[in-house]
Simulated assay, not measured.
Amino acid sequence: MKQRPFGQTGKAVSEIGFGAWAIGGSWGDVSESDAKAALHAALDSGTTFIDTADVYGDGRSERIIAAVLKERGGPRPFVATKAGRRLDPHSAAGYNAANLNAFVERSLVNLETDCLDLVQLHCPPTEVYYRPDVFEAMDAMVAAGKIRGYGVSVEKVEEGLKAIEYPGVESVQIIYNIFRQRPADLFMREAKARGIAVIVRVPLASGLLTGKMKADTTFAADDHRLFNREGQAFDKGETFAGVPYDVALDAVEEIRPLVPPGMSMSQFALRWILMNDAVTTVIPGAKNREQAEANNAASDLPPLSDSAMKALRALYLDKIAPFVHHYW
């Protein structure tokens, strides 16, 4: 597993991390035994970065991570969590020192630690990025020893560009994949120039880029791929990267011939992301051991060809960009 520097923190993390949303909730049923097996497999095969959030299964994801790390012992991997989405209503006014401290205290208990490696503001309303007091509250928690550092998880490129104006921001988590290429146009360059770690989420477009979905694929009632296609529960861009399902399925069929022998479509999609050297780590989810091992194996695969990269760019501009490019 290759390592990449985590911004200017002096730490390095695995270029393929573990996205722990699926083991928390909103992805259909995942048993605790499967969840633990997936995380063990990821760590066994080189993962040193785990991303979670306090709302994933109402803390279930954080608690499973704590249990697995206790079982393993030894050096802890870098564990990033998020705060803010527990607010109800989820409003900019709720992002204040009292609430953020309460969320962090809860995550400290769930993750069974006395200091969190990284806390990310969890896709807050855009107004929050224009409130220095929010970032001052995060600075205060660093000074108090509750967190080692902080970053933001954003929906829009513009939010990421605004966030990195604050000197305390160490990382930005953003959606970037074959179907969401806009971050590469400006954001990635700015993040790299400023020494900001970039965490890439939704790398497989909610599973579309595995190549396993069909028009008649069904999803469980508690799976966001069923209930959030039009943004009914949270930002539409988090589900299938915001691309209409039928449009995405047609695009997947055009991608399929580009995948070289010995590489799955999922690994091909992960390799595409890793071609950008501004990316620090990509965090695919895994519901079982096999998925985790396959994800991590992408780190050892060869780079994609120039012809494949050009074909994917052309496909994006022609078929996908009209649906996503100017929205996120």
Rank of each mutant, 00 (worst) to 15 (best):
L208H: 02
S31T: 13
L118K: 08
G94C: 07
F179G: 00
F179Q: 00
A297W: 07
L208D: 02
F227C: 04
Y95W: 12
A215M: 13
V142A: 07
S206D: 10
L317H: 11
K212H: 10
V202Q: 04
V282A: 09
D88C: 09
V104K: 04
G151P: 10
D216T: 06
A140I: 12
T126Y: 13
A184P: 02
V128L: 04
V324A: 05
A294Q: 12
C123R: 02
Q267K: 13
F323G: 05
S45K: 12
R85Q: 15
P260G: 15
K192E: 15
P132I: 03
K214L: 15
T126W: 11
G84M: 11
V13W: 00
M141Y: 10
M309A: 05
Y56V: 01
K236Q: 11
R182F: 03
K192Y: 14
G207N: 10
T52C: 15
A12E: 09
Y150D: 14
F18V: 03
P77H: 15
E170W: 04
A98Y: 08
W27N: 05
I147D: 09
I196C: 04
I23K: 08
P125S: 03
A12G: 05
V55G: 07
E293S: 08
S264R: 04
I255T: 10
D216L: 07
A12N: 11
K192M: 11
D117T: 07
V134D: 03
R131P: 00
D51E: 13
D246F: 08
T281Y: 09
P132G: 14
A294P: 10
G46I: 01
L111C: 12
V119Y: 06
P322E: 13
N296R: 12
V202A: 08
H122Y: 06
G74R: 02
N177C: 04
R131H: 12
K146P: 11
Y95R: 04
P244S: 12
K287Q: 13
G262A: 07
D54S: 04
R106L: 13
T210S: 15
A233K: 05
A278F: 13
G46S: 14
V169G: 06
L315V: 04
L270E: 05
A83V: 14
G94L: 01
N288E: 06
D306E: 12
D133T: 15
V109G: 14
S305A: 08
D44E: 15
E290K: 07
I16F: 10
K162I: 15
T280G: 13
V198H: 09
A37S: 13
I283R: 00
N96F: 12
E253L: 10
